[in-house]
Simulated scan of single mutants.
Amino acid sequence: MPTAVNWPKAIEPLIKKYKDFKHPLDYKNTYQLLVMVVLSAQDSDKHINKVAPEIFEKYPNMTALSKATPDDLLEALRGIRNFANKSKWLLEIAHLVKKDSAIPMNLEALTEMPGIGRKSANVILRESGKPAEGVIVDLHVVRVAPRLGIATGTDPKKIEKQIMETLPEKQWDAGMCMSFHGREICRPTPKCEECFMTKVCAYYQRLKAE
C-alpha cells in the first residue's frame, strides 16, 4: 500500500461524485431492499430487478412472506441462482422478523440473520440512510481497491478491514462509491482515459511507468 498517498484526501473526489447514487437494486422500501439483497448474491442486480415485481406481488411485506409455504416460495424464486437456499433463508428471516417495522437496523443483528453477510448488511444500512458500520466490498470493490492501492489482496473481509483502517468512519461510504466507479469506469478493462483518480491510482502509475 503506497504510504505517500493521503487517502482521506485522495478519496474525496470519488465520494463527492458517487455519494448520492442509489444502489442499482430497484427496491421501494426496506423490506424489498432486504429481500432483493439476499436474492442478488451470486446473481445480477439486473436479473433481480426483472423478477422482483412478481415476487412482491405475491409477498408484499414481511408478514405475507412469513406465511408463505416452503413449496410456494421455492416456486416463486425458481430461476434465481441458488434459489433453494435463498428460499430457506428468506423464510427463516420472515419467521424471525415477522413484520417490516421489526427489520433490524444495525450490522450485528443483520449479520445474525441467514443469507446476510457483512456486505449485504452494509448495503441495507447505507440504503436505509443509517450511519455506516463497515465498508461495502462487492466484486467491483475487490477489483478497484487494489488497483487504486488503498487495499491489497482479493479477500473482501481483509479489503474491508484495510479500508476501515485507512479512512475515517465518515468516509466509509467509499466502498459503495468504489463499486459505482467499478461499474462505470474502472471496469475489468478499465477506461483510464476517463478516470479522475489517475493521479493517485497505483495501477495507472504502473501503466505509465511501463
Score class of each variant (00 low, 15 high):
residue 39 L to P: 07
residue 152 T to H: 00
residue 28 K to W: 03
residue 19 K to Y: 11
residue 88 K to N: 01
residue 171 Q to G: 09
residue 173 D to G: 12
residue 114 P to W: 01
residue 175 G to M: 09
residue 53 P to I: 03
residue 33 L to Q: 08
residue 123 V to R: 06
residue 79 G to E: 02
residue 57 E to C: 02
residue 163 I to Y: 14
residue 49 N to E: 02
residue 87 S to R: 02
residue 122 N to H: 11
residue 200 V to Q: 11
residue 84 A to N: 08
residue 1 M to I: 10
residue 63 T to A: 14
residue 80 I to A: 04
residue 131 P to D: 10
residue 93 I to A: 04
residue 198 T to E: 15
residue 191 K to S: 12
residue 116 I to L: 14
residue 116 I to P: 05
residue 99 K to N: 03
residue 112 E to T: 07
residue 5 V to L: 05
residue 183 R to M: 12
residue 209 A to Y: 01
residue 125 L to W: 09
residue 132 A to C: 14
residue 179 S to D: 05
residue 151 A to C: 12
residue 42 Q to K: 02
residue 57 E to K: 15
residue 116 I to N: 04
residue 31 Y to K: 02
residue 43 D to R: 00
residue 73 L to N: 01
residue 183 R to S: 08
residue 28 K to A: 04
residue 5 V to D: 05
residue 114 P to V: 01
residue 155 D to F: 05
residue 91 L to A: 03
residue 209 A to E: 14
residue 111 T to G: 06
residue 71 D to E: 11
residue 202 A to T: 10
residue 47 H to M: 06
residue 92 E to I: 03
residue 139 L to E: 14
residue 186 C to Y: 08
residue 183 R to E: 09
residue 83 F to T: 01
residue 70 P to D: 00
residue 118 R to A: 10
residue 88 K to S: 01
residue 105 M to N: 12
residue 62 M to Q: 03
residue 203 Y to E: 10
residue 169 E to M: 14
residue 60 P to Q: 02
residue 135 V to S: 11
residue 156 P to V: 13
residue 4 A to Q: 13
residue 73 L to V: 01
residue 71 D to W: 00
residue 205 Q to I: 07
residue 29 N to E: 05
residue 88 K to V: 01
residue 158 K to A: 14
residue 178 M to C: 08
residue 66 S to Q: 01
residue 152 T to K: 04
residue 45 D to I: 01
residue 31 Y to W: 06
residue 17 K to Q: 10
residue 75 E to S: 06
residue 78 R to G: 04
residue 20 D to I: 02
residue 87 S to T: 08
residue 158 K to T: 08
residue 185 I to A: 03
residue 26 D to S: 07
residue 155 D to N: 15
residue 70 P to I: 00
residue 95 H to S: 13
residue 106 N to R: 09
residue 15 I to C: 11
residue 56 F to E: 00
residue 97 V to W: 10
residue 207 L to T: 09
residue 121 A to W: 07
residue 145 A to K: 13
residue 59 Y to M: 00
residue 150 I to C: 13
residue 35 V to I: 12
residue 128 S to L: 05
residue 101 S to H: 04
residue 75 E to Q: 12
residue 109 A to I: 08
residue 105 M to H: 15
residue 106 N to V: 03
residue 109 A to C: 09
residue 36 M to Q: 11
residue 9 K to I: 10
residue 117 G to V: 09
residue 204 Y to W: 15
residue 50 K to S: 09
residue 165 E to L: 10
residue 133 E to C: 04
residue 159 I to V: 11
residue 63 T to C: 02
residue 175 G to K: 12
residue 130 K to S: 08
residue 47 H to F: 15
residue 6 N to G: 02
residue 151 A to N: 11
residue 4 A to K: 09
residue 157 K to G: 09
residue 68 A to E: 00
residue 145 A to Y: 14
residue 140 H to V: 07
residue 168 P to H: 10
residue 22 K to R: 15
residue 70 P to Q: 00
residue 160 E to N: 09
residue 137 V to T: 13
residue 53 P to N: 03
residue 123 V to Y: 06
residue 11 I to V: 15
residue 162 Q to K: 14
